[in-house]
Write a protein that binds this DNA or RNA. Structure first.
Lengths: 340, 340
DNA sequence: CCGATTCGGCGAATCGGTTCGACAGACAGT
DNA sequence: ACTGTCTGTCGAACCGATTCGCCGAATCGG
């Protein structure tokens, strides 16, 4: 069932059918209706490949996700969902492509085969070879997170540096003098993962400014890692009364270790962080946190990408989101430590 | 940069370039090398749309996921990851398409536009209109879970009925006399969600056979729902000493409610379930469960789908997985209830 | 009443690959 | 020497859309 068959049945030429559907030229009301009727009867849909070939675009975007071997965080999952949603609203399809060495081939196909009109790149590094590849290939893209040289490129990011700073200030205001930052994994930081590094900077700056003592701990993205990490913190630095975390996946583990040590949140230990709203609310007790608007970010990324696709020469845009801290129940005024 | 340009630079015809690349006809070693050299210099990749148009296939599969508004469970996430992995290994791309009323349009594009060679359908119902649509469109597909009439179709599923039955038997062997099944949400069950309904059947059959008293509770897919559900169970049926759950996302909430009621797992209350291995292991205490091999399922689904695409007339295959119950620490011998 | 304009529609070219049939030249068999 | 086979290559058709240029008929203004 192709456009020629429709044309034959409606007694018109193929071009007329095409114009009737696209509306790019006038077609008489009468023939338009006849064509529409034939199409309805034969549930015809234009072949996507043929259209893509002629138009030079696929109406598909690529979404490059972190290596699937490492489980996605809820934040990332929410982001993926919102990209799907926004794409659907714009009549775009989404080609999912995992990143990582194993999937090098898939990435190449994505770019060189022109299977997509543009790409959204998740979890990028300060230096990211994929960014250079995309630039070289002339493929429009938007990154989640930004590289070291952030001007002149298109991205959406969360202001980890500022947020972590605000968290530190909030704790300082409540009298905490000795706090810790629970960051993402050491591997990720070593590979130049921006959010982690900017969280570090924000933490160090704010700690210095407020005259606190602060310790940073890297932590893997799951509960056991969180458990072990918090256990180490309590052992090495019993004077610590609060933690700032940018590692939502570790939260259940942190909680477990605190519980085992007989510490209650927030009575004996305050916890504050940057996390997906859902995650913060499901935490027990509900986590005081800057709720990362992952949904909003997905929509913004798609919007930016479509803009860039429509006009590749447009001036680069970016978005640095800085959500407010939602006060919930995991933070309290510092008390003199009764342990140590 | 297209095949014509490569041909021009190599001083041969376009067809020769094509044959040199595909190997479908002999090309002399000499010209093959010359062509390869030109290609290397100009980093040429065949245009995917043109190839798809001529070949009549896209080398892309569609993965229809549950509505993204509802968060995916870790089991589903693991499944998606394994589909991506298996697809990449077969040099296939994956087009992600959300299901649900809002995304009707995306589903239509997927099928009618022939954007994909086949589809993997997640979370299907006993009666599923999407299955009929795919059949009518002549689009090869494999479902995760099976419809009411399961013969003659292609699917991969977990034997919820048998697994839940085995869980019940395990509890009965340990002396539990009064147990509950914590199922998926009432909505999902009402819409004819197979795994939930088969879990119910397995539960009822085994409970009857062993002469236990059993109660089934539906439960939403998140921690708060689990909390509320377990609270209700403890209130309505204080005699219950164990729960079988097929709702992994509710687990943290179940635990929380038990803890609040002063009940320790497994000392005072046994918990057994069907869950992703990762989820069972991270649970505290580690959950005795039938570990759903989501990764294996993804690979199997892709394998079945490629078979079906290659030979649409092949006899339908399906796979009913029945993983063993891994004994961990969340189940104990029943003791006389001290509460109630 | 005639030339200009508008309208609706048609035919053909095009996108970038794949593939079929043809064909020249080398070589073997009789 | 003549026929037959094999090898390497080429030209052209084709997949199914979009789009440009063109043309006949109807309409309009002077």
């Amino acid at each position: 069932m192709n456009i020629g068959e429709i044309a034959r049945r409606a007694g018109v030429s193929r071009s007329t059918v095409s114009y009737a559907l696209s509306g790019k030229r006038n077609v008489s009301e009468e023939t338009r209706l006849r064509i529409q009727q034939v199409i309805d009867e034969s549930d015809y849909r234009p072949n996507a490949a043929a259209r893509a070939l002629k138009e030079g675009r696929t109406r598909t975007i690529g979404l490059v996700i972190p290596p699937p071997a490492r489980r996605l965080t809820y934040m990332q999952l929410e982001f993926v969902a919102s990209v799907l949603e926004a794409a659907a609203q714009n009549d775009l399809d989404v080609l999912l492509s995992p990143s990582g060495d194993k999937y090098e081939h898939a990435f190449k196909r994505l770019i060189d085969g022109r299977r997509v009109d543009g790409v959204i790149l998740m979890e990028i590094r300060l230096q990211d070879p994929r960014v250079e590849r995309l630039e070289k290939a002339g493929m429009p893209f938007v990154t989640i997170g930004h590289t070291a040289r952030s001007d002149g490129s298109w991205w959406v990011d969360v202001d980890y540096q500022g947020l972590v700073g605000r968290c530190v200030n909030h704790l300082a205001d409540l009298g905490h003098r000795s706090i810790t930052l629970i960051n993402r994994s050491a591997d990720l930081l070593a590979s130049g993962y921006g959010p982690g590094l900017r969280a570090r900077t924000g933490f160090q700056d704010a700690v210095a400014e407020r005259g606190l003592s602060g310790f940073e701990y890297p932590c893997g993205d799951d509960a056991p890692a969180g458990d072990g990490c918090m256990a180490r913190i309590l052992e090495h630095h019993p004077e610590v009364t609060a933690a700032v975390t940018v590692n939502e996946a570790a939260l259940p583990g942190l909680q477990r270790a605190l519980h085992r040590a007989g510490l209650d949140v927030p009575r004996d230990f305050s916890l504050i962080g940057v996390a997906a709203q859902h995650w913060a609310e499901e935490f027990h007790p509900p986590l005081t946190s800057a709720d990362v608007p992952a949904g909003e970010m997905g929509a913004a990324a798609v919007r930016l990408l479509t803009e860039r696709i429509a006009d590749p020469a447009a001036v680069p845009e970016h978005l640095l989101l800085s959500p407010p801290i939602s006060l919930r129940d995991s933070v309290s005024r510092a008390r003199a430590p009764e342990r140590g």
